[in-house]
Amino acid sequence: MNPTTVAVKAGFRRGRIELIQTLTNGMDLFAQFFWPVATMVAAFFMRHGTFQGTGVGLGSLALPSLLGMIVAITGMAGVAQGLAMDREDGTLLRAKATPNGMLGYLIGKVVAVSGITLIQVALILVFGLTAIGGLHLDSVGAWTTLIGMLILGLLACLPLGAVLGSVFDSPRSVGFVTLPIMGLVAISGIFYPISGLPGWLQAIAHVFPIYWLGLGMRSALLPDSAAAVELSHSWRHLETVAVLGAWAVLGFLLAPMVLRRMARRESGAAVAARRERAMSRA
Rank of each mutant, 00 (worst) to 15 (best):
L238H: 04
S166M: 07
R275G: 15
V41C: 11
F33M: 10
G165Y: 01
G199E: 14
M76D: 06
R277E: 13
I73N: 09
V241W: 06
L250I: 14
L155Q: 07
A263G: 06
P193T: 13
L164C: 05
S232C: 01
I190R: 06
S267N: 08
V185R: 03
L123Q: 08
A227I: 04
G49W: 02
L67Q: 10
V110K: 02
V121D: 03
L164Y: 14
V121R: 01
A112F: 14
F30G: 12
E88L: 13
V121A: 03
D138C: 07
S188D: 03
R94I: 09
G128C: 09
G251D: 00
V8I: 15
G189E: 11
T145P: 08
M1T: 12
L129K: 15
G57E: 07
M76S: 12
R275D: 05
L137T: 09
F44S: 08
F44T: 00
L129M: 07
G101T: 07
V6P: 09
S170I: 13
A162H: 14
G153Y: 02
A227G: 15
V79Y: 01
T22F: 07
L244K: 01
L103V: 14
L184E: 06
N100G: 14
L123K: 01
T130I: 05
S139W: 00
A263S: 13
G59R: 01
Y211R: 01
A38C: 10
R277I: 10
V229Q: 04
I187E: 00
A186W: 02
V110G: 05
L254H: 02
G26P: 11
S173Y: 04
G104C: 10
S114T: 09
G134F: 01
Q81Y: 12
S195V: 14
H48N: 09
I151M: 02
Y192M: 13
